[in-house]
């Protein structure tokens, strides 16, 4: 169904970006295997890629760009990048873009650091 139905495609992409509203619904779909699914691009920098009022428009730091095989937001949590995000001022905004057969989802997160903890706050 994911092959042809856009609603299923969008749901699969939302599963990757953690943009669904219901945790039980998200958890129930977690056993569905999704290894190396979709094309997943990530940008991390000192500004969101899409304009958000109140945020700087010109980057001061070099933007980091990469692709990941699945669940692109894991770049924040699943490694020692946690330390980099806490320490470095330049890496507080993360933009994810995942594409599948013409459907695409772009999500922006602000990585708020407080008391040594990282709060992933969705901005769009």
């Amino acid at each position: 169904m994911k092959l042809w139905i856009p609603a299923w495609q969008r749901r699969g992409l939302a599963q990757f970006h953690l943009t669904v509203n219901s945790y039980p619904e998200w958890l129930l779909l977690q056993p569905v295997p999704a290894m190396y699914n979709y094309g997943n691009e990530i940008w991390i920098g000192d500004r969101p890629r899409r304009g958000v009022p109140g945020h700087p428009t010109a980057p001061k730091y070099r933007e980091y760009y990469t692709w990941l095989n699945h669940y692109p937001l894991r770049i924040v949590s699943f490694s020692w990048t946690r330390d980099v995000i806490v320490r470095e001022k330049g890496y507080k905004y993360i933009t994810l873009h995942s594409g599948y057969r013409g459907s695409g989802l772009e999500t922006g997160y602000f990585l708020r650091v407080a008391d040594g903890q990282i709060f992933m706050e969705r901005i769009y």
Binding site: Y36, N37, G99
Partner: peptide, 21 residues
């Protein structure tokens, strides 16, 4: 099947995703 279906997209069919990853 779930693994293959998720790759039936231009990013993988063109090899770009593997190239970038």
């Amino acid at each position: 099947l779930a693994g293959a279906v998720g790759k039936l997209t231009p990013e993988y069919l063109s090899g770009e995703a593997f190239f970038r990853i």
